[in-house]
């Protein structure tokens, strides 16, 4: 502990901490609590049993009551420690509770029923992860279906977007054809109008194409993003034209130049765009909400949102589902933090 404090309090110059340094670290610690705290609380809570979740005030770690199998009873019985009264100090299993009195038995002597005032007993508990919250998702809900829908949309939309956008970016950066500037102006123009303000006509077009209530209705309309074309074009401009000329000398077709030379050389920009696209599609909410109205087509986000209304109080499933929904993004973030940060900063949006 002392080592940690020493490490934390060392300033870069090796000098003493002054009050501004203290203030800085206070702010940072507060930041960790406020930014990380809620997510950690969510993860911890998702491992609690429904009974433990209803408990107020809540405890930090997940606990579960100890149970015992007694001859003559089919279900395991909850164990209690008796804290006062006649049976003080003994560990008894509860059969049922009637008002303020509990009917209990000693697991060693299942024949004799004992009556205990409920204020005289404390549940025996141990730290335990309620993994059934997670496994229950697969058994009770169509969770795999939602997971599949989300994954399918994310993967297909990302692949289509990368291909279509990189082709357009290639044309706009490496060819000098008439109308190039007009196309570029249209791309910039559509940057101004986000999807959120053309929802009604977008709905009509999607419906007319027969894509309403289909995963393709989510995938296709989002594929041609101006941001993607822009990001890739800016990168492809920096690839020297001489490489293309050399390839043309060798009688390579334009398509071959595109996917054998330009695409591999643009890999860094494509990687950034791929990460962004995965994030956009995975987290997408408003457009899927409008397009997908049948439960079996729901994405994870839609399922989460509709279940929070339906289940209302069944937080155990809801929290587990929330954790599973944020998990892929959390993993991507852990491994690719640097790319994401630069990608988002350079495109100026999420």
């Amino acid at each position: 502990m002392g080592k940690i404090v020493e490490f934390m309090t060392r300033t870069r110059g090796g000098g003493k901490m002054d009050w501004t340094d203290w203030l800085t670290y206070c702010y940072l610690v507060l930041g960790i609590l406020l930014m990380f705290g809620p997510v950690i609380w969510l993860v911890l809570s998702s491992f609690k049993t429904e009974a433990d979740l209803q408990r107020f005030p809540p405890r930090f770690l997940p606990y579960a009551q100890e149970t015992v199998m007694v001859d003559g009873y089919e279900d395991p019985l909850p164990l209690f420690q008796i804290t006062a009264g006649e049976y003080e100090g003994r560990t008894l299993a509860q059969l049922r509770r009637v008002g303020l009195v509990a009917q209990m038995i000693d697991p060693a002597d299942p024949e004799t029923r004992l009556r205990v005032d409920i204020s005289n007993r404390e549940p025996l508990e141990h730290l335990s992860l309620a993994v059934e919250n997670y496994t229950g998702l697969f058994e009770r809900f169509n969770f795999l279906r939602f997971l599949w829908n989300s994954t399918f949309i994310t993967v297909m939309a990302t692949v289509i977007m990368l291909l279509v956008n990189s082709m357009a970016a290639f044309a706009l950066s490496k060819y000098k054809f008439r109308g190039r500037m007009t196309v570029l102006a249209i791309v910039i123009g559509t940057l101004m109008i986000p999807q959120t303000v053309v929802l009604v006509p977008l709905f009509l077009i999607t419906q007319q194409l027969g894509m309403l209530n289909s995963l393709w209705g989510v995938i296709i309309p989002g594929a041609a993003t101006p941001t993607g074309v822009f990001l890739l074009r800016q990168y492809m401009i920096t690839i020297p034209d001489e490489i293309l000329d050399a390839a043309r000398m060798d009688k390579a077709s334009e398509w071959k130049i595109f996917w054998r030379i330009i695409l591999p050389l643009s890999a860094p920009a494509i990687a950034v765009l791929a990460i962004l696209a995965i994030m956009w599609r995975w987290n997408d909410f408003l457009w899927p909400l409008i397009v997908l109205s049948q439960t079996e087509n729901f994405t994870l986000q839609l399922a989460l949102n509709s279940f929070q209304g339906e289940l209302n109080t069944e937080w155990s499933s809801l929290l587990a589902m929330t954790v599973l929904t944020l998990l892929p993004i959390a993993l991507v973030f852990m491994f690719l933090q640097k790319y994401i940060a630069t990608g988002i900063a350079s495109t100026g949006g999420k």
Binding site: M167, A171, K176, P201, I205, I220, A223, A224, E254
Partner: peptide, 26 residues
């Protein structure tokens, strides 16, 4: 040089259908 339009085509179709046309229809 004119092959560029072939490269642009898929993107322009998507753009036209899902970005440009909606603005007018709106």
């Amino acid at each position: 040089q004119r092959l560029a339009w072939a490269f642009l085509l898929p993107n322009l179709v998507l753009f036209g259908l899902f970005a440009f046309l909606p603005i007018i229809l709106n």
